[in-house]
């Protein structure tokens, strides 16, 4: 196998896979699941937002300045995050997989760069605002809830915040690595 012609000839001798059975039905089902997942993410964020707004009025938070600010910080950061996610879902739909490799890679690079701005700056700011809002609510929780339940809320939230921080860090690392790869691919 000394030249490209031999190379190509050998290449044609590779084994071929048989056409999988029921594959089309599987593909259509998976395609529908992908769409459903995107909708579910929006619904979860939306419901959390609605619950917080409901809670705001239920406890008449507007009568207490600290509680109001705390809850508004939490509602505001969640709503903003939801809007950003919605915007990005919309903008990824514009990156069509049937573009030429050059156009597709360029669009992906732009997309991940803007994602980095969100991941490095916007998400941490929103995350900190959310935690700040939660901390502002703690005295009110301590006053109105049983000691056991208060402890539960305090420690479970702490755990959730730590997990979220780790997830954000992982996401940033992944996006950085994807941008590096994309830069190297286009000559």
């Amino acid at each position: 196998m000394n030249n490209y012609k031999d190379f190509k000839e050998q290449w044609g001798k590779r084994s071929q896979s048989e056409l999988p059975k029921n594959a089309v039905a599987d593909i259509i089902t998976k395609g529908k699941i992908v769409k459903r997942k995107q909708i579910i993410t929006q619904i979860v964020l939306g419901v959390t937002c609605v619950v917080l707004i409901g809670f705001f009025f239920y406890i008449s938070a507007y009568n207490d300045k600290t509680v109001s600010i705390g809850l508004l910080l939490m509602i505001g950061s969640l709503s903003l995050r939801m809007l950003i996610e919605y915007f990005y879902t919309f903008s990824t739909k514009k990156i069509l997989p049937d573009e030429t490799l050059h156009t597709y890679s360029e669009k992906l690079k732009r997309y991940y760069k803007s994602r980095l701005f969100i991941s490095y700056l916007v998400t941490p700011v929103l995350f900190i605002s959310y935690i700040a809002g939660f901390i502002m609510l703690l005295p009110s929780f301590e006053q109105n809830l049983s000691s056991g339940f208060y402890q539960y809320i305090l420690y479970s939230s702490l755990l959730i915040f730590i997990i979220l921080a780790v997830l954000i860090a992982i996401q940033i690392r992944k996006e950085l690595s994807l941008i590096r790869d994309l830069k190297m691919e286009i000559e």
Partner: peptide, 25 residues
């Protein structure tokens, strides 16, 4: 590099995209 299982996974992803974008062709 000839990894058939991985190739099958990729083929499935490709055809999911084909199905999703067929209306754009």
């Amino acid at each position: 590099s000839g990894n058939e299982d991985l190739a099958k996974e990729l083929v499935q992803q490709v055809f999911i995209k084909v199905w999703e974008n067929l209306k754009n062709f």
